[in-house]
Design a protein around this nucleic acid. Sequence first.
RNA 1: GGUCGGAUGGCCGAGAGGCGAGGCAAGGGACUGCAAAUCCCUCUACACGGGUUCAAAUCCCGUUCCGACCUCCA
Length: 467
Amino acid sequence: MSALNLYDTATREVGVFKPLQPGQVSIYVCGATVQAAPHIGHVRSAVNFDILRRWLIWSGYDVTFIRNVTDIDDKILQKAVIEKMQWWALAMKYERIFNSAYAALNVMPPTYEPRATGHITQMIELMQTLIDNGAAYAPGNGDVYLEVRKLKRYLTLSGQKLDDLQPAADVDAGASMKKDPRDFALWKAAKVGEPSWPTPWGAGRPGWHLECSAMAHTYLGEAFDIHAGGLDLIFPHHENEIAQSEAAGHKFANRWLHNAWVTQSGEKMSKSLGNTLQVDVILQRVRGIELRWYLGSAHYRSMLEYSEAALDESAVAFRRIENFINRATELLGEQPTPVVNDAFCAAMNDDLAVPAALAGISENLRLGNQGITDSDLTIVAKAASEIRGALQILGCDPLDQNFAQSAPANVNEALDGVIHLALKERTAARERKDFAASDAIRDGLLELGITIEDTAQGPRWSMTEKS
RNA sequence: GGUCGGAUGGCCGAGAGGCGAGGCAAGGGACUGCAAAUCCCUCUACACGGGUUCAAAUCCCGUUCCGACCUCCA
């Protein structure tokens, strides 16, 4: 088996992945700032790194996967005012919505999901270290800043030069307390009516970046394997995480992975453009497993240009695969055993080349369908096993219990019985060549969203989405 | 201004020196009472201009266009 190769944003090269500890992988993914409901760009990130995680687990690694929740920041406070809620109630509300989106898309829950507000102590310790080192300073107004000019290296992830940056457009006069306009706030002084926590430098709340360094350190140690997040986090968020962590003497992340965006008309999905597509809206159009398939099928470093047509096409393609798995399961009399074949393995080891892996699935789908036509169960079993193996890694196994619909246990059985009564009548009509009657039954069922197919093994039915 | 990414057939979407990934759509065929499903066959590409090379979608130089980031962002 080939070794896993991954792209590293820091070196901008694909290279062999070697964990710091043999057999173990530690991953920190920047999760949600819970200030609004997720759009499909947010969950694309979750799906992409869930696929990475599943691949690492399949490859035999013991994976510790930390994905944080940032539950205190400027936008949360602003949003709380707008929605007339306590900031903590608002954060919790959106955290739940994020979690239900993750669940609908079969994203594995993280090993641990730390919240920023639960790690104030660790943040204060980190700031104390940075002040003791001379890397950070508290000018006395309650803010604490990192002094970026003192850093040995800064902006190496984004490849920029400090002097090339446009100076931050700080609005408040407090910015003048900075030694350099490019210094960033580790900690922000309390304002009236805003939540705060006591520190040796005054009461306040975390700046945006500090929480990730503190939590990564807490759960993964001073050095860990992979830090991941969206492309737009490279600067400033990840640069600043690196800056404050390295200034505290931590090696921090060994490798950086960034997923690309979901775009519309070539433009990144964002609130300010008003072009966001919320997950719950899309889930009225397609099922969770179909949305996951769509989001996961492009390479994680490629922009995914959203369109309804592309989403629909992707969903139809997935249903073909699902249909084959279901038919194969019926024919074989048992669920196919998942098998990861060499082609899939090679594709995934090449920087998670999912699109290349999909070509292999298509090939197997063709062979498997041919096997069904020929009633060659050996071929059907092989194809179904290999497809299911791939689908499991992609988190899109239609037989996965996480995608099962909730309904009374006997509903499917009862429905099956009712449909078979109708099919019996239809078969009788066909035997007496009364095709008008047999077609009427089939059309009637179709109107209810039930598709009838005549096969060599007799009629079979399946539920389809009513359009 | 600085940094980064992109442009591939009707559409989506890989590839990164040599054999045209794959899917969808379209056309033809097989199967079928009709349909659905399935299978087979066919077709259409590398933004533009130079260069390197036996060979360029791929490397180099230049150009155009699109997008992202520059302390709010997945």
